[in-house]
């Protein structure tokens, strides 16, 4: 290229760079697309619904990808349905331990839906055993009608016998997937919730930021308030010596106060969306999932426990009585009520 051409190109580039800031045809206020009413109309339109579904499906795919990723590509059937529902179990167990000042590698004596607890200590040793056998998407040789084709399938795809102890990938590596699923659908609450759980193992502040973003996009999500409360409890514990709560430590108490506010808010929003008992008793109902019920139970349990821990025994008792009536199947809460009972 000739030198003069090069000089011309550089000069022109400098000019366009200077002009670039002047070119802002999109900086205007208002406009149909910015009006809240229009947004609502678009959301309700057939195309809006289709696009919304696509966005949700995309997030679901990322979510399933995290599942496969965690198990080095081995797809386990029950995991797709249960594992991350256990995240709330993991969260609540950890949270309870936080509040009650126990060791985090505790024995889960809170009785928090024990039948379903299995992968609890993901934050510990990555090698772990399943307490009960899980089913793989590719069936075992005994259950596979495809004969040699099935053998071939098991050979060429990541697979291992369901009963065998298996490894988990490093948790940190799934974090970008949670980022992507919440970018694809900012209303994918589960992505924020589970993502924050993994992030908090690395950096509690980053997890708190992630949850704040989730709350901005989903201001009425009780699951996110639950998560924020848990993070506040974790922060409070990290301030104390050996992770213990000291009643004389003002900073810790302030954080616990914030957590209490979060659990209270979560309980309020939860009660607004949780269907009536008679609806919940119908097994065919689809309004309320098991995950939501687990989180709902966690919210009230944590709130009551925290009130008790702070020293508001009477308030804790009052809340326990109230929510035992609302959640007759909440075994831990009933146990707690008996312990506190007059």
């Amino acid at each position: 290229m000739k030198k003069t051409d090069l000089i011309k190109i550089i000069l022109l580039w400098c000019l366009v760079a200077l002009l670039s800031a002047k070119v802002q045809p999109r900086t205007y206020t208002g406009g149909t697309s910015q009006r809240l009413q229009s947004k609502a109309e678009v959301k309700q339109s057939a195309l809006g619904i289709m696009l919304g579904e696509f966005r949700t499906n995309l997030s679901d795919m990322f979510y399933m990808q995290t599942e496969n990723f965690m198990h080095y590509g081995v797809a386990f059937l029950p995991h797709n349905h249960e594992e991350h529902s256990h995240t709330s179990d993991m969260l609540t167990d950890t949270g309870m331990a936080h509040i009650e000042g126990e060791d985090e590698t505790h024995d889960h004596d809170h009785g928090h839906d024990h039948e379903r607890d299995h992968d609890d200590d993901h934050d510990g040793d990555p090698h772990h055993d399943h307490e009960h056998e899980v089913i793989t998407v590719i069936p075992t040789a005994e259950k596979d009608y495809r004969s040699w084709l099935g053998n071939l399938h098991r050979q060429i795809k990541p697979w291992q016998a369901p009963g065998e102890s298996h490894q988990l990938a490093r948790d940190v590596e799934v974090v970008p997937l949670f980022r992507m699923m919440t970018l694809a659908d900012p209303h994918y609450v589960r992505g924020y919730q589970v993502g924050a759980f993994w992030i908090q193992q690395l950096d509690v502040s980053a997890a708190a930021d992630f949850i704040e973003e989730g709350l901005q996009n989903n201001p009425h999500s009780f699951e996110l308030y639950l998560m924020r409360g848990l993070l506040n409890v974790k922060k409070a514990r990290s301030m104390g010596e050996q992770g213990l709560i000291d009643n004389g430590n003002a900073a810790q108490q302030a954080l616990l106060e914030c957590a209490r506010g979060d659990f209270q808010q979560a309980a309020e929003y939860m009660m607004q969306v949780r269907p009536a008992l008679e609806v919940l008793e119908d097994e065919a109902q689809t309004l309320w999932s098991d995950d939501q019920e687990t989180d709902a139970m966690a919210v009230v349990y944590l709130w009551v426990t925290l009130e008790k821990r702070i020293g508001n025994e009477a308030r804790a008792l009052e809340l326990a009585e109230k929510y035992c009536r609302v959640m007759p199947d909440h075994k831990q809460l009933h146990v707690l009520l008996q312990e506190m009972g007059p």
């Binding site: 149909t32 947004k39 678009v42 195309l47």
Partner: peptide, 12 residues
């Protein structure tokens, strides 16, 4: 189908 709302029509 008759898209009556101006917001949705503008979106389309």
């Amino acid at each position: 189908q008759g898209m009556e709302s101006p917001g949705a029509a503008s979106f389309m």
